[in-house]
């Protein structure tokens, strides 16, 4: 196979050029991201600066808050990840699960009908105002991408200082899921004359709801 031949040729050229004696200088450690005095405040202000809506609310009020957001959006077709519905059953009042089957079965609905997708955040990073998503069987990748409005639910205690902290603490390197995603705002572009426009291809609106312990 051509690609096997190419592999051998490339690796041979690289090996021939490698000095052999790789000096074992330690990787100079990344300068630590400063520990934030008020990580939550920092997180919220960065997300807002990046055009996300941020709402902090008691878990008991979640359904009301979501209902308000949906009314504001004028949304009628709302889908929540099964993971979300399992954790917050009260949301079945305002959102439905995806139809059964795989993406091939509901792709057109997702693109053409669904106005809001509700998913969960696996954790968050204060230093950059970032949410970490960990899609899976009960939370498809496309639910946070295709509908024009994305609502993200975050538990406050999962807020880390920064990316390095999160990946070390949770030992990501041991087992990465098929997909892991950092989101720091609604989709945007500045490709036309450096003018910022939101909703390039992904959600135009990102609503982050922060729930306490």
């Amino acid at each position: 196979m051509a690609t096997t031949k190419a592999k051998a040729a490339i690796l041979n050229k690289l090996r021939a050029a490698s000095s052999g004696a790789v000096d074992a200088a330690p990787v100079s450690a990344a300068p630590a991201v400063p520990t934030l005095v008020d990580p939550l405040e920092h997180f919220v202000s960065l997300l807002k600066a990046n055009h996300a809506q941020v709402i902090q609310c008691e878990t008991a009020r979640l359904q009301t808050v979501v209902t308000d957001v949906l009314r504001e959006q004028g949304a009628t077709r709302v889908i929540a990840a099964e993971r979300v519905l399992a954790e917050f059953p009260e949301l079945t009042q305002v959102a439905e699960p995806l139809p059964p089957g795989t993406m091939e079965d509901w792709k057109e609905q997702l693109f053409n009908e669904v106005e809001v997708g509700i998913t969960s955040a696996h954790c968050a990073l204060a230093a950059t105002g970032t949410l970490v998503l960990r899609p899976g069987a009960d939370e498809p990748r496309s639910l946070s991408l295709v509908p024009p409005c994305h609502i993200l639910l975050l538990r406050e205690q999962t807020l880390y200082n920064d990316l390095t902290h999160a990946m070390v603490d949770q030992r990501w390197a041991e087992q990465m899921p098929t997909n892991m995603l950092l989101v720091s705002g609604p989709s945007k572009t500045a490709d036309i004359q450096q003018t910022l426009a939101y909703g390039a291809h992904g959600p135009r609106t990102l609503v982050v709801i922060i729930l306490p312990q």
Partner: peptide
């Protein structure tokens, strides 16, 4: 806005949809 880490196709590990 996005940092996308892809470590496999659909369902390689769990039954993704």
């Amino acid at each position: 806005t996005y940092f996308n880490m892809i470590s496999g196709p659909r369902g390689y590990g769990e039954a993704e949809r």
